[in-house]
Design a binder for these strands. Sequence first.
DNA 1: CAGATCGCTGGACACCTTGTACAGTCAGAC
DNA 2: GTCTGACTGTACAAGGTGTCCAGCGATCTG
Lengths: 157, 157
Amino acid sequence: MIDGLDGRVIELFTAEPRIGVLEASRRLGVARGTVQARLDRLARQGVIRGYGPEIDPAALGYGVTAFVTLQIRQAGGHDPVVARLARVPEVIELHTITGGGDMLCRIVARNNQDLQRVIDVIVDVQGVERASSVISLATQIPHRTLPLVRAAAGDGD
Amino acid sequence: MIDGLDGRVIELFTAEPRIGVLEASRRLGVARGTVQARLDRLARQGVIRGYGPEIDPAALGYGVTAFVTLQIRQAGGHDPVVARLARVPEVIELHTITGGGDMLCRIVARNNQDLQRVIDVIVDVQGVERASSVISLATQIPHRTLPLVRAAAGDGD
DNA sequence: CAGATCGCTGGACACCTTGTACAGTCAGAC
DNA sequence: GTCTGACTGTACAAGGTGTCCAGCGATCTG
């Protein structure tokens, strides 16, 4: 899927996103066209999804993260619930998970009191039967993909 | 914290990360220097953490995502466990959560069989007593922060 | 083996963006 | 009234980007 050079390209752009293709080619010791071709291919394959700015909710004042497991009422299915949860800005991520029609969502709030409000909003969503939440006390490993890239690039994968 | 223009800047760069400051200023109807100043400030405040390429694990062959709740043995504390889990490339994220010394981690695997292997690796980590996992069947809302940005920009926040 | 294909190299070109600076304008604060 | 801060519009040098092309070595194929 990706080779060693792909891995190094991704690694370099992850470490220093602003360097540009030309500087990257110098650092990697390959021609500029090569780096460009690799980036094009990686984007085409969907490996690189985009270069959007990463927003830190904490810096926006949303310092509390929690994971909420939802019990969904069977009747009506998931979709209406998803649509309603999508309208809650504090819902950062939402997954359907294994186990009796449940969902897992990641939410943020300004503080613990605000978290109560957000959870109430979610519980009030039509179709949600129960919600049980765990609060993230600390993020030991922030979202990362680099080791995965290295693993994928390392294997002849 | 951030105002309406900040919100529009973030929104625009999220939608089209490659446009550049000049084009952004044209679209937003403000001077280039203004956009530049806003971006600088947002980066300084930590709101914009960076512009690294977003990697899609699925495109790398890791199509399965799961959330694993870990029971940690009290003796020794979390840190050694964190250090060991950090060495597992499939561990994408790790949080300390509320409730008797537990942790929640997000992992990926190539398929369900591979997931078994990854979970075994995690359970084998010294200090991990038990692991219970839920598999993500579908991602209803992929990680997003835009609504939050809008909410923060909307309030006089 | 000859021929074709593919990816990489290294160079070239026009075009455009960036970084930076500066004077002018305007609104709000003191 | 005056000061401060933010935005505007402009300018300039420096450098990167998109694009194209010829050449080269490795690999595959008949």
